[in-house]
């Protein structure tokens, strides 16, 4: 395949995705929504934590929950964003068949559609973190932040989430009903098994292996460690592993999940062509 085809598929999809994501008639409303939504989500957790802990915000559990929840925004934004493009183009805009007959690389097109969701997700993560630091006593010492680890982990995780989105996009192609919920359901399930708001040790022993197999578990742990390094000392789940070891596991699982995602997408794509599902509209 020519590199120009890959690039134009990705670039134009990112352009289109941004126009769709930023399509707010009133920019003021867009700004309010961008700020209020992530802060409201975080505020619910803060209130719950406050009631359970009796208002003890100095406990290490608080930044654990807060940071896990903040970065989990990327899971919903990027992973669901990529798979949602199938629903959007097929059901809403009725353009998926025209994309499919165009000389583009469909997986890269779908990944490109996720770029805008990454940008809006990043804004939401930034606002949530800023609110936590400014108003909720989330203590991050910027002089001690391991920026290299942070950005390497962030980029690796976003790529991993985008590839997981491709897996969901493949499944979405083959499903007639409820395809809109596939992304949300998966993001919800991962929320429980990724140590986003509680350590895996809280789960029953027989459920923990699911969490250990999820790359998101290691991704969130490394993001926390890069920002507040003392987390590993307090929570025993991955305390025995160094940052480099966890990064290695994250990389390995990302490659594994990425390869599986590409295979699943290709398989589902072939199924969709066989069954005539690419241009099907269900009006659900």
């Amino acid at each position: 395949m020519q590199p120009t085809i890959s690039w134009r598929s990705f670039r134009m999809a990112a352009w289109l995705g941004w126009l769709i994501e930023s399509n707010w008639t009133d920019p003021f409303l867009f700004a309010v929504y961008s700020i209020v939504k992530p802060i409201s989500g975080a505020a619910i957790l803060v209130v719950m934590y406050s009631i359970i802990s009796g208002g003890n915000f100095d406990n290490a559990m608080f930044p654990y929950i807060y940071l896990g929840n903040a970065f989990y925004i990327y899971v919903g934004a990027v992973m669901t964003g990529v798979s949602w493009a199938v629903v959007d183009d097929r059901e809403h805009y009725k353009t998926l068949k025209y994309m499919y007959i165009a000389p583009i690389h469909i997986p890269l097109y779908l990944l490109g559609r996720g770029v805008a969701r990454f940008v809006t997700g990043s804004i939401a993560v930034f606002i949530t973190l800023a609110a936590g630091i400014l108003f909720l006593n989330v203590k991050i010492n910027f002089a001690e932040v391991d920026w290299l680890l942070f950005f390497v982990t962030l980029i690796l995780g976003v790529v991993m989430l985008a590839l997981l989105g491709l897996l969901l996009a493949g499944v979405t192609l083959t499903v007639a009903r409820h395809e809109g919920f596939i992304g949300e359901a998966t993001a919800g399930a991962l929320y429980i098994f990724s140590g986003a708001i509680f350590p895996l040790d809280v789960l029953p022993e027989w459920l923990r292996p699911i969490g250990y197999f999820m790359p998101t578990t290691y991704w969130l742990e490394l993001l926390r460690r890069s920002l507040i390094g003392n987390v590993a000392e307090i929570f025993p789940t991955l305390a025995g592993f160094s940052n480099l070891e966890i990064l290695g596991v994250l990389f390995g699982l990302s490659v594994l999940f990425g390869a599986v995602s590409i295979w699943v997408f290709r398989y589902c794509d072939a199924i969709a062509r066989e069954r005539g599902l690419i241009d099907r509209t269900t009006n659900y």
Partner: peptide, 16 residues
Amino acid sequence: RINMVSGGESSGYGLL
């Protein structure tokens, strides 16, 4: 080398 148009449908990105 091909393209296609289907009639009787309102496809396209309405916000563009």
